[in-house]
């Protein structure tokens, strides 16, 4: 069974045509991988489907815009994967 990171990295590689071996847990989806907001919709769609969750993108965006969170908290992949794991666990509880 693949890890959350492997699943997310594969989704990003396939959706954005980014070489899989350039995607690491420390990659920032926006700053390092150059993923724009439109591509991120496709990624969010694929992540939602793969994990049976709904990434709270509107809430995250609001928190970043309000200065209550940084983009690193949500868009560095190891942090994104931690959020996904939390959402999956919350759904199963």
């Amino acid at each position: 069974m693949s890890s959350t990171f492997d699943t997310v990295a594969n989704i990003i590689a396939e959706t954005c045509d980014i070489p899989r071996d350039t995607i690491t847990p420390d990659s920032h989806a926006i700053d390092d991988l150059g993923i724009d907001s439109l591509d991120f919709l496709d990624i969010a769609f694929a992540i939602d489907k793969a994990f049976g969750i709904k990434l709270p993108l509107e809430q995250w965006t609001q928190e970043v815009n309000d200065g209550k969170a940084t983009t690193e908290q949500y868009f560095v992949l190891k942090n994104l994967c931690a959020r996904i794991d939390e959402l999956v666990a919350a759904k199963a509880a």
Binding site: L41, F45, D48, K49, K54, P56, L57, Q59, T61
Partner: peptide, 8 residues
């Protein structure tokens, strides 16, 4: 699919 702030 209906995501957060988007629909497919």
């Amino acid at each position: 699919h209906e995501g957060s702030g988007f629909v497919v």
